[in-house]
Each structure stands twice: as structure tokens, then as C-alpha cells.
């Protein structure tokens, strides 16, 4: 039974990672930007959710407010800053690193240095019996949300007109533009959606992992690992990578505490050596 619980924990954590990595991966796939501000959307999104939750008491409102705020921030960063440096890697790196610093310090200013916990919604504050243990329902809820988002993204990408345009843009942005697809709008849209997904992860993580300065960077690195393992630009890869990293991380912490990070980084290095483009990445 312990094993089942560890796997469930790992999957729940993996789902949070998926929400972050999916945006990172989509943004890279379409715009070839390694967005170092992505962890910031997670942390600031989580903090905004926390504040809204404390003032209104509603978890749903917290989710909506934080998702909208980060989508707007993402759109602004893409539209007014990153766009000037399209396909120019070095300025993009410097710019997104700058924003990482700016928002890290601003949120330290506003929300302080102590870890803050969000309250989970009342309806989910219980647990289900599982063998000798009681398993918190909230984690099962995380898994459900992750699966729903994965399904939604898949449906969007494969079945909708906008999704078709997105795939065309990922394959070849220039040809897509020539075919009359508004690729510029697509860029802003994808960046906003990526930011919104990260914000969603931030609010959802609040009751489990707590929010603290530096979480932006930690999450960014793990999301990096996920897209490295799964392959840049692939949703399937982000999901597979997130589940793998989530489970490995949980098992590592539980069974080899001294080498907890080793259990994540070594498999990543091995996969990269065997497949430099990740499990589902294309050259």
C-alpha cells in the first residue's frame, strides 16, 4: 500500500509539473524561447491566489483572478518585450532573466520571506481510507485537474481550428504566416495561456507545497528537467516527462534522502545521452 501512496503522491506532483512544463514546452515549440520567467508566473500566480483567497474566502475566485492576472502579464511581456527579439536567443535569455529577478524581488517585498500556505477548499478537506492510511482527497483532485487540463489541451490542439493553426505555427512559423495565419497573435495567445497554466499550478500547489521566495526558480528548474526528458515542444512529452519526474522525485525523497536530487538528474542525463532531443522531441 505504501507503494500505491508514493505513486499517487508522485503523480499528483507530476500533474503540477505538467501544468508548468506544458506552457514552457508550447512556448518553446512555437517561438523557440526558453522562458526563464515561467517559474515566476507560477509563484506570483500562487501569491495572487493566496491574497484573493484571504480576502474573499473563495478558492474558485482565487483561481480565476490569478489565472487572468498572469495571462495578462504573460501577454504584456510577450507583446511589448520579447517580440522585439524574435529568434534572438541571447537577448531573450537576458530579458527573461531580468523579469525573473524583478518579480522575485517584488513578491518578496509584497508577500514577505516566510513560506505561505493556501487553505484548500472546504469540500476537499477530507481523506479517503486506503489500506491502513487515509489519503487526502485534495491530491486526488490535483490528479483529476491535471488529467482534465491534459485532455483539454489535447482536444484544443487536435480538434479545433486554433489548435490546427498552432500546430502549423510550431511546424513552420513562416509558412503558416504565408498561409494567412495570424502567427503574431498566436504568439501572444500561447504565451498568455502558458502563463495562465503556470498560475493555475501555483494556486493549486499552494495548499500542498506552500509558496516561498525561490520557489519560482526551483519550479523552473524542475520544469526544465521535464521538458528535457519529454522533448521540447511536445505536449505528450511534457506529460510523460512530468509523471516520470514527479514519481522519481517522490521515490528519491522517500527512499534515498541523501541522493534525492540524484534520482531526478541522473535519469535525465541518461535519457539525454541516449536521446538528445528527449523522449518525444523532434530534431
Amino acid at each position: 500500500m505504501t507503494w500505491v501512496i508514493h505513486i499517487l503522491n508522485g503523480v499528483a506532483y507530476g500533474m503540477l509539473l505538467f501544468l508548468i512544463a506544458a506552457g514552457l514546452s508550447l512556448i518553446y515549440g512555437l517561438m523557440k524561447i526558453l522562458n526563464l520567467t515561467h517559474g515566476t508566473f507560477y509563484l506570483v500566480g500562487g501569491y495572487i491566489g493566496l491574497t484573493v483567497m484571504q480576502t474573499t474566502g473563495s478558492f474558485i475566485l482565487a483561481l480565476i483572478a490569478s489565472v487572468l492576472a498572469m495571462a495578462l502579464l504573460g501577454a504584456i511581456i510577450e507583446r511589448f518585450f520579447l517580440r522585439r527579439f524574435h529568434l534572438d536567443e541571447l537577448p531573450q535569455t537576458l530579458l527573461t532573466f531580468g523579469f525573473l529577478f524583478i518579480f522575485a524581488d517584488l513578491s518578496l517585498w509584497i508577500w514577505g520571506g516566510n513560506p505561505l500556505m493556501l487553505d484548500e477548499p472546504e469540500i476537499l478537506q477530507r481523506s479517503v481510507p486506503m489500506g491502513y492510511y487515509a489519503y487526502p482527497v485534495y491530491r486526488l483532485f490535483l490528479i483529476a485537474v491535471g488529467l482534465a487540463v491534459a485532455g483539454g489541451l489535447w482536444w484544443f490542439q487536435e480538434k479545433t481550428r486554433l489548435g490546427t493553426m498552432l500546430r502549423a505555427g510550431v511546424d513552420d512559423a513562416e509558412i503558416a504566416r504565408a498561409l494567412g495565419i495570424n502567427v503574431s497573435l498566436l504568439f501572444t495567445l500561447v504565451f498568455a495561456v502558458g502563463a495562465a497554466l503556470a498560475a493555475l499550478a501555483g494556486v493549486l500547489a499552494g495548499p500542498v507545497l506552500s509558496l516561498y521566495p525561490g520557489a519560482d526558480f526551483e519550479v523552473l528548474i524542475l520544469a526544465f528537467v521535464v521538458v528535457i526528458v519529454g522533448g521540447l515542444g511536445s505536449l505528450r512529452g511534457a506529460l510523460a516527462g512530468a509523471l516520470l519526474v514527479g514519481i522519481l522525485d517522490d521515490f528519491g525523497k522517500a527512499f534515498f534522502p541523501e541522493f534525492a536530487l540524484f534520482t531526478v538528474f541522473v535519469p535525465m542525463a541518461v535519457i539525454l545521452v541516449l536521446r538528445p532531443t528527449g523522449l518525444f522531441g523532434r530534431r
Binding site: Y28, K32, L34, E89, I221, F224, V225, V227, I228, L232, E258, F259, A260, L261, F262, V264, F265, V266, M268, A269, L272, V273, P276, T277, G281
Partner: peptide
Amino acid sequence: RARGSYFLMITFALAQVVWSVAFGW
């Protein structure tokens, strides 16, 4: 074996392995 962003990520990954050894051992 890789170029561009993948080169960046592989070097990052390898360095993190070294870091995790220093951190964990």
C-alpha cells in the same frame, strides 16, 4: 551531440548531476 537550446539544456543537465553529487554526498 546537440545544438542550440538542446546544447544549453544538456550542459545544464550534466552540471546539475555534478551539483547533486556535491549536495548529496
